[in-house]
Structure formats: C-alpha cells, structure tokens
C-alpha cells in the first residue's frame, strides 16, 4: 500500500528518496497509475520527478538534442526545435494516445515502459538515441536500442535508477526522416504497425539508413539487412521497392486479435516502408 508521495527538487534528492523504503519513480503516471490500481505494481513510496527543473528541458548542445525525463509527449510534439531538427520524433510523439494523455505522459516514461511498439522509442532508435542513467554508482549511458529486455520490461530499474534524459544528434542538411503509423483509429489507438526512418544521402546516393519497425517482435526491430543492402544505392524507385521488400522479408509479425493477422501486417508493412522512404528521401533532398 502506498504510504508516501514525495516531490524532490533535485536529481540527488530523487536518488536519496529512492534509497529509503520500497520506492519507485513516477513521472506522468499514465501507465503506473493503472498498474498500481490493477495490483501489478506494489510500491510504498512514489518519487515524483516533475518538480526537478533540470528534467523539464528540451535543449540543443553541440549538435546534440537533449530531452529531459519530465518532458511530456505534447511538449516534444510541439517543440519548434524538434519539429525542425528531428521531425520523425515530433510526429511519433504526436500520435500517442490523446491530447490529455500527451499532456501528462512523458516521452522518457514511454521508452522505459518498454512496450513493443512505443511510438517514441521507435523514432528514438532510428535517431540513434542514448539514455543517460543516474544511480548510486554515478552516471552511465545506454542506447535506447539496448534498453529493452522484453515486453513491458526494460533494463532500467525505476526503484533504483533515474533516466535523466535522452539525447541524439540533431538532423543536418542531407538527412531526412519519416514516421509512418497504421492504427485502427486516429486517436487513442495502439499502433498495428509503426515505422521510423532516418536517412543520410551523399549526392543522389544513400550514405546510410536506419529503419526501425514495430510491433513485429517483443521490442522495436532494426531492419539490418535492408540497411546494409541500401548503402551506396541510387535514390530511385527501384531502390525503394527493393528495400521495402527486404524489410518485409526480415519481419515476421505475429497474428494478433488486436493488431491484425501476421499476413496482413507483413504486406502492409511493405507499403508503409515505401511511404517512409519516399518521405525521408524527399526531406533529405530539400
């Protein structure tokens, strides 16, 4: 049963509060409140991080964009900086839940909760994002891609560790990105599929591509084969089709009552990847 709720003002204060009792971090609480009500999470003390000013920032330092742990989806989606320098992430955050959910749920919380198709996580992996983690032993860093352990489980232990921020390189000219999503409705619907693309061109050739898809496995998956295959290729329709085929052949979505049959999703995936590549190429060529 919950016996205490504290709102420290500093990162050190958060870590100190975690040390006493069976405590756990709460940010937006959009998932945690439900888990607690359902008895899935037993805690005695909640450590609310929303009063720590340093965790509420979106900033750019030496070409790296840094998003704090208390920043909400809506703040990311409407940030001019993110819309310009990481549009894939602004779009991903904008598709989450409803406005009410985006106004409370945090982007970093979405990542730590490790749902297989967490929209923000899919975009962040495509951007090559890294999480900054504070605990008793000091600071450490972990790529978002390696943060997943399994469905709903991440390597972060929110009873001991605090992810203070997530950072990634801002996109430059010659780079483009896209986020494409298939869901049953426009709002309040979990993704049946989502795809994030980040591409770097040199001239009219592909320098490198990062393509992440979900939910086709317990965690977001990089289309590594297709990423390799497309390197050095001309930007044209042939390349787009070949890449989309390669992505689909690597993916193996399961049949799901909620998300549609595997067969259906595999064939739609191809189309989504094509759309994503067209959009990302166009952005990179601007």
């Amino acid at each position: 049963m919950l016996k205490d709720y504290v709102q420290p003002k500093t990162v050190d204060g958060v870590l100190a509060s975690l040390r006493q009792g069976n405590a756990r971090i709460i940010a937006g609480g959009t998932d945690l409140m439900l888990d607690m009500k359902a008895g899935k999470t037993e805690v005695e003390k909640l450590v609310d991080i929303n009063c720590v000013d340093s965790l509420k920032k979106i900033e750019i330092v030496d070409g790296s964009i840094i998003i704090g742990a208390a920043v909400t989806h809506q703040e990311v989606a409407t940030s001019k900086l993110i819309q310009e320098k990481a549009p894939v992430l602004a779009k991903a955050c904008r598709t989450v839940g409803s406005l009410q959910i985006r106004n409370t749920g945090t982007m970093v919380g979405n990542v730590i909760n490790a749902q297989p198709a967490a929209d923000a996580a899919v975009a962040l992996i495509a951007l090559g994002a890294v999480a900054e983690i504070f605990d008793e032993n000091g600071i450490s860093y972990l790529p978002v891609e390696e943060l997943y352990l399994g469905v709903g489980q991440s390597k972060i232990d929110s009873s001991k560790q605090l992810v203070t921020s997530i950072k990634f390189p801002s996109l430059q000219s010659g780079q483009g990105s896209a986020f494409v999503r298939l869901a049953q409705r426009g709002a309040l619907a979990l993704p049946m599929l989502n795809v994030s693309v980040v591409v770097t061109l040199s001239g009219d050739k592909v320098d490198w591509l990062r393509l992440v898809m979900a939910p086709v496995a317990p965690k977001p998956v990089r289309a590594t084969e297709a990423e390799k295959m497309i390197q050095g290729k001309q930007v044209n329709e042939e390349t787009i089709i070949a890449t989309a085929n390669a992505v689909a052949s690597q993916a193996n979505p399961r049949d799901s009552a909620l998300r549609g049959s595997g067969e259906y999703r595999k064939s739609v995936l191809q189309t989504l990847v094509k759309r994503g590549l067209i959009e990302a190429f166009a952005e990179a060529q601007k």
Partner: peptide, 15 residues
C-alpha cells in the same frame, strides 16, 4: 492550462 485525464493523474501532482 492543459487538458488532462483526472482519473490517471495522482492527486498530489496537483499540489
């Protein structure tokens, strides 16, 4: 100033 779902906001977050 922001619309939120009060059913999933901890009361103490309104402090």
């Amino acid at each position: 100033g922001k619309a939120v779902n009060s059913c999933i906001v901890p009361a103490l977050q309104a402090m």
